[in-house]
Amino acid sequence: MTVTAVRPTTTPAPARRPARFRRRRTLINHLLIAPALLLSVGIVVIPGLLTAFTAFTDWSGVGLDANLVGLRNFREILADPVFGTALENNLRWVAMFLTIPAVLGLLTAWLLLRRRRTRTFYQVVYLMPYVLSPVVNALIWLSIIYNPNGGLVGTLNDIGLPVSAPLSSLTGAFYAAAAVDMWHYWGFLTVIYLGAMRQTPVDQVEAAIMDGADSWQVFRNVYLPSIRPALLLMAVMTVIFSFLAFDYIYLLTQGGPAHSSEVLGTYAYAFAFSAFQFGKASAVALVMSFFGLIASCVYTWMSRKQDD
């Protein structure tokens, strides 16, 4: 690492200098990495650890007045039927996001793989909803599509199709919100999968074609195994983010009507900022993060098994 190792003749300094020089360099390097670590620890990790602690208290979120209450917060949320609905909805969310956007992403990526000229155009178009704010996307769907007075749903009613307003339906509101999130999200997967498919070694593809494989077989036996790491990573990310889903539900339904579209994210948020029960909110947040943690562990375990 030191300059002396490369060109001894250019460093006539006494032997003690490199050691001091190296110590100074080490100090500088630690100073360079410090801002990133300090911000991350101070803003993400320490409050995160506080959540793990406040989940066992009756903290209201204001001041330092908090009493340890043991597992009471967890017992109370487990006894709340809304918690069950929310957890169930999160599991539905996982199932939907692991399948629908993944299939759309794979299909479009596969079709774009051999279209060199139009590839960029389609990727940009597919990403457009993805780069827009959830607020904007949600309000567009809320006012011009799902709206029974002036939206597309209203028009369908006018021409005689009896479509009920999706967002005020007990069974439909949850899926209506999920649909908007998926509409905004799947293009992201197209770009990821296409990027991964393009890393597939050309000779493997050519060998398969030489062996007389048709395009489905090439996809199935060459591309799919080749993008396995990307598929796996995205699946894990999907599971983690499905337990944290918040924006689209909160903006489109607020968890309603009658808590039917509640997810753990909106459930926790209401405890903190409507009921000022930060202890309970923390308990729910801990449960949500726990599911994400399981997904991360499964991922680490699977990728290690793959390396063996």
């Binding site: 803003i43 506080l50 983690i240 337990f243 926790a268 909110a281 801990l286 949500m288 993060s289």
Partner: peptide, 11 residues
Amino acid sequence: TVPVQLFVFPL
């Protein structure tokens, strides 16, 4: 991988 909801309330 630390979720926003895990640190937003104390923060």
